[in-house]
Amino acid sequence: MLINSENGVIDLETFTTRLYKGMKFDQLKQTDFYKKMYHNMWDVKTGYFWYYFKSIEIAGYQVSFSLCFFGDHLDIIHMSTWEKTDAKDWNDWTEEKEMRVFHRNNTFLTRILEMPPTQKKKIPYPSCTFKFPWGNIWSVYDPRSASSLMGINFNEEEKNK
């Protein structure tokens, strides 16, 4: 199981790494996942730092992770599936290709969570949500950024634990 439905913790077994809300950056740096898969970092200049990782295989999908730290604590987890046929740049991008990524992300989440989405929406943009007592796991196609991604949101009370 990749995402624990009891608490939203991501278990990357191949790297003996657990990703969770509030994880300290120093803890992440000690993991095999960070040491082997770290790709890039973006300092947003607001106290937030995004760390990007090379894709890894999970359940037959290539999945990349983007981890956002506020200060030295993990605050936001984003993911996306990837295939060779996906757009490589703006000249190759089409909304149809991006919608395929969105649907693939939804299928990936349905498979690893072993449940159908709790909610599907088309407005204001296509999204899929899996709700849990601690928060939710979501997938969205955002036409404003021309991208599809997945993520985990934690309830406010969970954030403060």
Score class of each variant (00 low, 15 high):
144 R>A: 14
132 F>Y: 15
74 L>C: 00
102 F>Y: 15
26 D>G: 03
72 D>G: 03
48 Y>N: 06
29 K>R: 11
25 F>L: 15
76 I>C: 02
20 Y>F: 15
94 T>V: 14
71 G>K: 07
78 H>E: 13
89 D>N: 12
64 S>K: 00
48 Y>F: 14
22 G>W: 01
12 L>N: 03
121 K>D: 11
45 K>F: 10
62 Q>C: 10
136 N>T: 05
76 I>Y: 02
42 W>T: 09
93 W>L: 06
135 G>C: 10
132 F>H: 05
161 K>W: 07
36 K>I: 06
88 K>L: 11
146 A>L: 13
49 F>D: 00
115 M>D: 08
158 E>M: 14
107 T>S: 12
140 V>I: 10
106 N>R: 13
22 G>D: 04
154 F>V: 04
86 D>V: 07
3 I>H: 03
141 Y>Q: 06
27 Q>W: 01
47 G>T: 09
6 E>R: 13
99 M>Q: 09
69 F>P: 00
99 M>K: 13
61 Y>M: 04
81 T>L: 03
41 M>K: 08
112 I>K: 06
108 F>H: 04
86 D>S: 12
59 A>L: 14
116 P>K: 11
74 L>M: 02
142 D>H: 04
90 W>R: 10
103 H>A: 15
102 F>D: 03
12 L>H: 03
100 R>M: 12
143 P>Y: 06
80 S>V: 05
144 R>M: 11
59 A>R: 12
6 E>W: 07
144 R>V: 14
17 T>E: 04
133 P>K: 15
90 W>H: 08
23 M>Q: 10
150 M>R: 00
106 N>Y: 05
96 E>L: 12
122 K>W: 09
16 T>Y: 09
5 S>G: 10
99 M>A: 04
17 T>F: 01
49 F>T: 04
3 I>W: 05
56 I>V: 15
109 L>P: 02
46 T>H: 06
132 F>K: 02
147 S>K: 10
118 T>E: 11
120 K>G: 06
109 L>D: 02
68 C>Q: 08
66 S>L: 07
138 W>E: 00
132 F>W: 09
151 G>R: 02
62 Q>R: 11
36 K>C: 06
161 K>F: 11
147 S>A: 15
63 V>N: 01
115 M>N: 09
41 M>F: 06
155 N>Q: 12
35 K>C: 04
22 G>S: 05
127 S>K: 12
137 I>Y: 04
82 W>I: 11
104 R>T: 08
158 E>A: 09
130 F>Q: 03
48 Y>E: 08
134 W>P: 06
95 E>G: 05
70 F>P: 00
105 N>C: 11
63 V>L: 09
11 D>V: 14
137 I>G: 02
48 Y>Q: 10
144 R>K: 14
45 K>C: 03
18 R>P: 00
107 T>Q: 12
85 T>K: 15
1 M>N: 10
53 F>D: 01
145 S>L: 08
106 N>S: 11
29 K>A: 14
1 M>K: 13
26 D>A: 08
87 A>E: 07
123 I>A: 10
